[in-house]
Amino acid sequence: MIQVDHLTVNFGPSVAVRDVSFSVTQGESFGLVGESGSGKSTILRTIMGLNPDWSGSIKIDGQDTKSTSRTDLARRAQMVFQDPYASLHPRYVIGQAIAEPMRINKLPDPEKRTVELLDLIGLPGQFRFRFPHELSGGQRQRVAIARALALNPKILLLDEPTSALDVSIQAEILNLLNQLRRELNLTFVIVSHDLAVISYMCDRLMVMRNAEAVETLSREQLRSRDIAQSYTRELIAAS
């Protein structure tokens, strides 16, 4: 579903991601874990075409992202950001925010679909008339997920989806994401610094450090501590 080969991302003179390769199959949930600055979010943003300066190849559904138009890419993959306070337009009501991608892509009947989406993520339809500041953090993150699902993408790229939330709300959002992945047969790439969240959510994971991939593990390997790199052990010990 996603095939990343020899990806290198530069920010001016500094290298944010160095020669990273991984692949994610249809319906799989893949985790990227590491400290801040290790390049994990940069990979997500590059997949979505948000970084101009990169080399290597990224294929989504067999199609090279360099030759894919932005709208086409947006219909295949969508991103959910860390901070739901910052990622929703403060002067758009929720309904507008969710319908915006549908309007850009000229999909039919955005109003009806907005209500369906709100229902899907567990908020009453009346919420479409509210502003983001009238919602709690968890509710906002639900809205961000609904917006990401508006174009029926096959892939969700989740950048620290729960680290701005309380632990009690985190559980609700993680449960919701798992349920959506099952029901809609989605493919996930989840970035997190929290190994516990990754171990709970992901079938496989890649540990990153200083712009490079340290190792890739299956959940079983992580749980049986079948680990080759000492850095991964350090991370487990710190969690």
């Binding site: 009690s168 559980a171 992580l222």
Partner: peptide, 20 residues
């Protein structure tokens, strides 16, 4: 107790997390 239970752990079960 709810706060303690709703945290995922590296080796914890994969069932839906108990919500408060």
């Amino acid at each position: 107790r709810g706060l303690l239970a709703c945290l995922p752990t590296i080796d914890g079960p994969l069932d839906p997390l108990p919500v408060l």
